[in-house]
Design a binder for these strands. Structure first.
Length: 762
DNA sequence: GAGTTTGAAACT
DNA sequence: CAGTTTCAAACTC
């Protein structure tokens, strides 16, 4: 595996050729790599890239300068950019290469480089400037580097990244002191200390987050962390300080996937929570801002420490930051569980990040307009630190090819397993084959829809089975219920309602690539019919013997947890997560495509759907829902091995059935439409007007009560009797009655007028 | 609602 | 890979 971390520098003053504020966000390194890449302000325009080993000893200290619209330089021949610096440990490299990448956009002004007295990097004129620094041992301590056996040297390679990934300049911080974010990778057993101090001589508050380590990978092999370019909001000097964190967090989102969606600010929350077996776990959480689309989420395990050093202006202009947004994530930590869950959730509200749990001190920073918010939360009662910072969203472009679940089982590699129903396509077969955290799982992660949950079983004994799995949002409900015991007042029906409400299916992002899973839950549907909540309708299963851990169970086959089902001895839930994981593994062993959508696109006819495997019907003629093809409303294909198939284009039986089905559907739709229309008409019926005017005067009709109506009726009846007694013709009798009715009305009006008059007099 | 039919999944 | 068994949904009454 390979650890890649990124650093980012931001120009503070676009008008100056040299910036006083160069923020290098540094890197996350693997357990096996050097401990830290640190930058600090040696002088206003010079930063120091420091690579520390696990014992805190400096391995590399490379000053570099950030130059506006020009190159940044590292004395040792390394060039760092104003935007991104990526430090990575090359996989399989005996020399333990570390790659530091920077955009090429900053490697243009050679003149200023030379002017600065710094060494011109080799090949800096090209777009890919690579400088290698090979260090055989710690130059300061003389001790061997803490690399795995066999590594005899380190190589730091500086490459340039596309300029498009660079950040825009910060126009406000020209005179601000250097802000530095340090990420220090430490050994697993590193002591935990929370230090909030001030950097001597700078007044810069230094926050050493009480994080033992950032769990990166349970594996012994290095973990690759790919960096993600940071959003290019115009004012991101603060955010840049923590960019490294976001980079590390976004490993998943970045790895192997396409470019990030520029201008899509989001937030990354690094949260350290208690972890079993003496290791801390970091929940890397990103939350996209409103109007943003998908989000990425990552849970990383490693053994690293994060130190955050932030300039005072970090807290300047603090504003509440909206956390919830269009597509955010939730981290769910289940006590006692080895699994770490992260959920992508739908936007709910624009709550404030500043508001945190009791005992937490939250710093929320949001740069001015269009800037990205940064939140640092330190829990006083717990050992928990959250850093919320922006980062660029990942391009959620989907490839039309579904690639789930991932069955690739590289040891020590996080895997992302998408349930069959997710229909989430990940890009490229090569990368999606293993939607792993290394190196490309993020693509799929970022493409997840709301409700998708990542289940991480890293470090568990299930390692090798599945370190990461995407589970349905319904799982989250169970997780949350575990975390928060149900209120005694909550009835079962309320619970059911809440669960139903919370249920969010995993679905395809792009309808064009939606793959229909043959599920009995959606009989004869042309596709996933969504409920009002956007959730796919879900039918409870009735499994009795399979424990809902076989593909017989639709819930399980769809990658869902059983919820409100009628099953017995169900193990398709959180309480049996290990069993479930084993069952998933078993299914995948039998059939790596087990959770793939059964219905895919036909290659023959564009846009046509087709059963990927084909049916084997013998007695139903493929004209009953027993047939998966018929159930999916598609015709049998060459893949089918059915006998007596009548489910083909020219089949008269099929046409008849389809017509009947269509007619029934039309009928249902008409009924529904009629009901809707009726209800809307009823709602349009004008209600009784107010009985009084705005001034309080009672209107005549308001005087008509039962007594008045009875008296009026008596008058009319008396008049009718009188007319009859007078032996008047029927026409005249009617007229007399109507005239009497008129007189009654006049009396009522007079009474209303009298009431109005008396009210005005009063 | 109970019993039957059916075909996918699981098993041998 | 083929045959058999198991299973749960679809279907019938």
């Amino acid at each position: 595996m390979e650890v890649v971390s990124a650093a980012e520098t931001i120009m503070a003053n676009p008008s100056s050729s040299y910036s006083h504020e160069s923020n290098l966000t540094s890197s996350l390194l693997s357990e096996a790599s050097v401990a830290a890449v640190t930058t600090s302000a040696m002088e206003p325009a010079l930063n120091l890239l420091t690579v520390q080993n696990q014992t805190g000893q400096f391995i590399i200290q490379q000053p570099f300068k950030t130059v506006m619209n020009g190159p940044s330089l590292v004395n040792n021949g390394a060039t760092l950019s104003k935007s991104h610096i990526i430090v990575r440990q090359k996989p399989g490299s005996t020399s333990q290469q570390m790659l530091v990448s920077a955009p090429s956009s900053v490697i243009e002004d050679i003149t200023s480089l030379e002017k600065s007295g710094l060494k011109r990097p080799h090949g800096s004129s090209g777009s890919n400037v690579i400088t290698k620094v090979i260090i055989t041992k710690n130059p300061l301590s003389g001790q061997p580097q803490p690399f795995p056996a066999g590594s005899s040297s380190q190589t730091i390679t500086l490459t340039s990244l596309p300029s498009s990934s660079s950040l825009s300049s910060d126009s406000s911080g020209g005179t601000s002191p250097t802000k530095t974010v340090t990420l220090t990778s430490q050994g697993i057993m590193s002591p935990v200390k929370t230090v909030i101090a001030t950097i001597p001589g700078t007044g810069i508050p230094k926050i050493n987050l009480p994080c033992h380590k950032i769990p990166i990978s349970p594996a012994k092999t290095p973990t690759k962390i790919t960096m993600i370019p940071v959003s290019r909001s115009p004012n991101k000097s603060i955010s840049s300080n923590i960019t490294v964190l976001s980079h590390a967090l976004n490993t998943l989102a970045q790895s192997g996937s396409g470019p990030l969606k520029s201008g899509s600010p989001s937030k990354v929350i690094i949260k350290q929570g208690p972890a079993p077996s003496g290791s801390s776990s970091f929940m890397l959480k990103t939350q996209s801002l409103p109007t943003l689309a998908p989000q990425t989420t990552q849970s990383v395990r490693s053994s690293q420490i994060v130190h955050a050093v932030m300039a005072p202006q970090v807290t300047q202009g603090m504003q509440p930051v909206a956390i919830s947004s269009a597509g955010s994530v939730q981290q769910i930590q289940v006590p006692g569980s080895r699994f770490h869950y992260v959920r992508l959730v739908s936007p709910v509200s624009n709550s404030l990040a500043a508001k945190s749990d009791s005992g937490e001190t939250t710093h929320i920073v949001q740069t001015p307009k269009n800037a990205l918010p940064i939140t640092i939360t330190k829990a006083t009662s717990t050992n928990q630190v959250k850093i919320t910072l922006p980062f660029q969203q990942q391009n959620a472009t989907l490839a039309p090819k579904p690639a789930i679940p991932v069955s690739h089982s590289t040891q020590g590699v996080h895997r992302v397993i998408l349930p069959a129903t997710s229909s989430v396509s990940v890009q490229g077969s090569a990368t999606t084959t293993l939607a792993t955290i290394q190196p490309a799982p993020a693509a799929s992660v970022s493409q997840l829809l709301s409700g998708t949950t990542i289940l991480s079983a890293a470090n568990s004994h299930l390692q090798g089975i599945q370190n990461f799995a995407l589970v349905p949002a319904s799982y989250v409900t169970q997780l949350q219920q575990l975390n928060k015991p149900q209120s005694a007042q909550e009835t079962s029906s309320q619970s059911a309602q809440r669960q139903t409400r919370d249920y969010i299916p995993i679905a395809s992002i792009d309808p064009a690539v939606t793959q229909y899973t043959v599920s009995r839950n959606v009989p004869n549907s042309n596709g996933p019919t969504l409920e009002a909540t956007g959730a796919r309708p879900r039918k409870p299963c009735n499994c009795t013997k399979s424990q809902c851990l076989k593909l017989y169970c639709d819930c399980f086959a769809n990658g869902e947890f059983c919820q409100n089902c009628n099953c017995t001895s169900c193990a398709n839930n959180l309480e049996h997560e290990e069993e479930r994981s084993k069952a998933i593994k078993s299914c995948l062993d039998r059939n790596p495509q087990a959770f793939h959508p059964k219905i895919g696109k036909s290659k023959d006819v564009e846009g046509n759907r087709r059963h990927n495997k084909g049916c084997n019907c013998k007695r139903s003629g493929c004209l009953k829902n027993y047939c998966e093809c018929y159930e999916a409303k598609i015709m049998c294909s060459n893949f089918c091995k059915c006998i007596g198939c009548k489910n083909f284009e020219e089949s008269a039986e099929r046409k008849t059935l389809m017509h009947l089905a269509d007619a029934a559907e039309v009928r249902v739709q008409q009924q529904t439409a009629a009901k809707t229309k009726l209800s809307s008409q009823i709602s349009c019926v004008p209600s009784r007007p107010p009985a009084a005017t705005a001034s309080g005067e009672r209107l005549p009709f308001a005087l008509i009560n039962s007594d008045v109506a009875e008296a009026t009726s008596a008058c009319l009846l008396a008049q009718a009797e009188e007319a009859e007694r007078m032996k008047m013709p029927p026409v005249v009798q009617e007229r007399m009655i109507i005239e009497e009715f008129g007189r009654c009305l006049m009396q009522i009006i007079d009474s209303a007028n009298r009431t109005r008059t008396s009210n005005s007099v009063a």
